[in-house]
């Protein structure tokens, strides 16, 4: 067994520097690497390029890094829940590359799986395809999109073991598995870290080979963005 555990988040994020490109898992605030984001704030690293489907809300998730002006560029599909984000974008302080959600996911998976690029129909004929190669296959038009290149990938899983094997829960899975192994270093934080052998190999979502470092996360807030409920009859 190749051991991937590190003692804490400080050790897990060793090597993060100004100007790096960092992938972060999560959809909205669901399944975000809360511990790693807090550590990025504490480290005060700047000029980051962040690849993340969303940009958090004003006071949680990536919004915390935006408040401290640590992000130079965001690559996301939807950024509608964050006023500070909108302000920085409209004033030109923050560069934003909006990418269709499926393309964003595939650019991660391509990096993970060793594909330099792929063709997708998404965005053909729109401003997303400007300056990109397009090609016809079987009478339909496609856009060439390139795999991401990132320094760190920060993901959150439900359970993990010493070997770096991961299991996700519910829709907190989202972009997290696609980002594992898609950067030079993948850091996984988990709600429950167990010894090797305790997780059933049949139940593993992401094999440890895609994970560089794993640590036991703590104090998960798991904030809900839209609490929708129905009444009991």
């Amino acid at each position: 067994m190749i051991k991937k555990t590190v003692a804490d988040v400080d050790t897990a994020l060793e090597g993060v520097k100004d100007g790096m490109t960092i992938m972060l898992g999560g959809f909205g605030l669901c399944g975000i690497p809360e511990n790693a984001i807090s550590e990025l704030v504490r480290l005060g690293v700047k000029d980051l390029t962040c690849i993340s489907n969303n940009a958090g809300v004003d006071d949680f998730g990536l919004g915390l890094l935006l408040q401290k002006r640590q992000i130079r560029k965001m690559i996301s599909s939807y950024v509608g829940e964050n006023e500070e984000f909108e302000r920085q974008m409209l004033s030109g302080e923050l560069e934003v590359e909006l990418t269709p959600q499926g393309t964003l996911a595939e650019k991660c998976r391509a990096a993970q799986a060793g594909f330099p690029a792929f063709y997708t129909p998404a965005g053909y004929g729109t401003e997303v395809s400007l300056g990109k190669e397009t090609r016809e296959f079987n009478g339909k038009m496609y856009v060439l999109e390139e795999a991401f290149k990132a320094d760190f990938s920060l993901v959150k899983a439900w359970k993990g073991d010493e070997a770096g094997n991961l299991i996700f829960k519910g829709t907190a899975r989202n972009f997290n598995p696609c980002m594992c192994g898609a950067a030079k270093i993948t850091v996984a934080e988990v709600e429950e870290l167990v010894p090797a052998g305790e997780l059933d190999p049949n139940e593993i979502h992401i094999p440890g080979i895609f994970v560089t470092r794993i640590f036991q996360g703590k104090n998960y807030e798991k904030r809900i963005e839209q609490r929708t409920v129905r009444k009991r009859n």
Binding site: A105, G170, T171, V229
Partner: peptide
């Protein structure tokens, strides 16, 4: 979900808390 049964790990694309029905499945974004 019924009040009190919301799960932060189970939401829809509108970021609303939801439930699943028998036969449901979860998967990654790709």
């Amino acid at each position: 979900p019924f009040e009190g049964e919301e799960d932060a790990d189970i939401i829809n694309a509108g970021k609303q808390t939801i439930t699943t029905l028998p036969g449901a499945s979860f998967f990654d974004s790709a």
